[in-house]
Design a protein around this nucleic acid. Structure first.
Lengths: 129, 129, 129, 129
DNA sequence: GTGGTCTAGACCACG
DNA sequence: GTGGTCTAGACCACT
């Protein structure tokens, strides 16, 4: 899985990494049960601090995307483990803010639906891999 | 317009306020040309510092949602002024991250479309008021 | 002389008015000895507060552009009265800042000279009127 | 880089600082990629408040002169990043006002061209360093 | 009475 | 150790 960090971005590095891993899971590039690169390995590969990778993994664990085992490393959870309802409430709040903004920017419901449709096609392809 | 700040949230107060004002604009609770409460008034009403409100208003100004005048206060911009294409690129990136996450959480394309549809109905109502 | 105030501008109204009067003098639209509209007249014409016009006129007087007489009103000074060396030092400082910025923005010396040349043509035409 | 603040000036401190940094960039005293002193360091050095320095840096960031990173501090942008066309329009307006004033003060086109020529020589020297 | 500026001190997030 | 956030209180500019 290819990670691309923008060091000039306002988004903290640990969140950029977290976001790209979530996208990777959605697109099927990271499959259920798959082991993520070790903290040291990932840090070296993308040229960031080990502690920063560690923070990303901790966040992903707290949000139910992965499980951290001392022996087996960091593994992608099953879909069931990710489907925890607690997160969905918070997700809908973020969606409301984002969609409000999209409306203000002049995007129609159809514009957004189209973008979402394209994203979901990517996700489905991943599942069939 | 009713503002509700969660002081325990990890989201900074000035961003919570900013987000709620954006939602208010989308829903038509704040109309084009309408004047927001003065920084001091708003600060007092929601129990935060004047400078924090000021920061929210400045962010909204930079993002094209409002205009700040020394005498007249802070006014909601017209839709045309909000439709700046620069923001749409950034908006789509945020949408991609959010939708990826939604997919992982088990939400179907239809679930999201339904939520968005409901939001857009609220927005439309605002326009017809 | 046509005055155009932008109420949305960050530049205070009294300075916008002051700047446009200075431009008018430079372009010859306002000639030496000519009387400016009265404070009340000007305020009414451009739809601003009387005190704001008054402030503009006071500033112009302090800067040597006009003289305020109780009887005759506000008169444009002669060129000699405007050529006070004190202002030239301050002008050069502002020029240095502006030109530094222009350089950073990628404007060449020729770009700027061309703009200045065009402006000076306007000024000269005014003199020949 | 030497900063000199005039506390009696009508120009706000944060703008004086901003202007001097822009001049420093133009003259090559601050090179592309160079890191500015931290807000606390700069504040201490020139005897002003940290937040005032912060405001200068934020303005410079908004205007495309520098980039602010949480860890690495504030870095001077590349020339390409400064060449944003939006600013050039506004720059020309300011130039028109300034040149009008210069004309009123009795400066000839040649006087101004000479000053600008001298400034551009300073800038060029910076580039050749 | 509005926002703008400046100062001051505290704690937090980032890496 | 960096900038980000929040609070607090003062005086000023604008109209």
């Amino acid at each position: 899985m290819y990670i691309n960090i923008n060091f000039k971005s306002k988004t903290p590095i640990y969140l950029q990494l977290r976001n790209q891993i979530v996208k990777g899971i959605a697109k099927g590039e990271l499959e259920e049960g798959e082991t993520l690169p070790s903290v040291r390995r990932m840090a070296k590969d993308i040229g960031i601090n080990m502690h920063t990778v560690n923070k990303s993994y901790k966040v992903l664990e707290n949000q139910g995307f992965v499980s951290i085992h001392k022996r087996k490393g960091v593994q992608v959870n099953s879909w069931e483990e990710m489907h925890h309802p607690d997160f969905i409430v918070e997700l809908n709040k973020r969606l409301e803010t984002l969609i409000s903004e999209a409306f203000c920017r002049g995007l129609s419901k159809e514009d957004i639906s189209k973008t979402i449709g394209e994203l979901y096609q990517k996700f489905s392809r991943g599942i069939n891999d």
